[in-house]
Design a protein around this nucleic acid. Sequence first.
DNA 1: CAAGATACGTCAATATGGCTGTCCCATCTT
DNA 2: AAGATGGGACAGCCATATTGACGTATCTTG
Lengths: 169, 169
Amino acid sequence: MAVPSSVSVTPTASPLFLRENEVRRGVELLFFGYTRLTRAIDEGLAEHGLGRAHHRALYFIARQPDLPISALLKILAITKQSLGRVLTDLSDRGLVETRAGDVDRRQKLLRLTPEGIQFEAQLFDALRNSLASAYAAAGQESVTGFWRVLEGLIPAEDKAMVVALQKDI
Amino acid sequence: MAVPSSVSVTPTASPLFLRENEVRRGVELLFFGYTRLTRAIDEGLAEHGLGRAHHRALYFIARQPDLPISALLKILAITKQSLGRVLTDLSDRGLVETRAGDVDRRQKLLRLTPEGIQFEAQLFDALRNSLASAYAAAGQESVTGFWRVLEGLIPAEDKAMVVALQKDI
DNA sequence: CAAGATACGTCAATATGGCTGTCCCATCTT
DNA sequence: AAGATGGGACAGCCATATTGACGTATCTTG
């Protein structure tokens, strides 16, 4: 509501007053795209009796080995208790291991075991297949735009965290 | 694994063998972008004691008034039972109403009440603010690419459904 | 018209993944 | 020595999803 989708007094409307349909299109494509992408790995997870929450942890541990728990908590933005259960499951299955931090021995640095690395890679394969075909269909220019828009959705206070993930590529 | 990220025999590698980092970037941006966008409406929902599942139903009912329940089930890809509870909550709060289909009286066509329309619009405002600033920061060309990549993530069998949502724009 | 398919509702039981609040221990900082 | 910080653990709760079975109204078809 409150969006003048047809009436426009000034010739170039402020980009903050985009036509409603452009926004709805983005909302819908994000919903379908995100949910369908995540569905690509459900089968692989179910084979180990794990869920998506486990994958998210696995993924970011794979991405940043020796990640302290506090960093993972910030990334996932869930509570310590929720993450605790997930990490217990992953440890019980021998997919994740911890060691004490060398600079601060209170920290537990998270790492995938060899089995964890293999499992994460298997799940990642499914993600890569989905994303790669979408990238290929859209073309490299579109991929850049895709990244740019998504970056704009990340609040300033979280942006450093995402950049940190991608800097050591 | 299995991704030849540095070695390339042919000059133009198949797009199905994208560099791992490009895929990981997409995965991460989708995760952060999607979760942060959805967080934008949590407060508004909580004021009514509703959750995100309720919003998803509200959203698509707003988008396609007189949507039959079966169509909403396909869109959301959840079970009848799960949707049932959500719709009960929305009806109890006077946000959604149903009427029998005229061509097929077994159908229940879903519609927002005036209060539902107002509430959905209020939630949509928050989404629009987030997406509009991301669109503006990225530029129109990027927005097109953003849409194209996301469209590529939607499986063929779901694509018609998404197009149907957006055709009557 | 009878039979079957379809649209929707509902009951019961269960799983997952979040949450709050509280308390604890080990370790680092000051 | 005191306090802050990183992490673990308890108990209980909530939201959202699942499966399977069954019931009813209505439409379609032989």
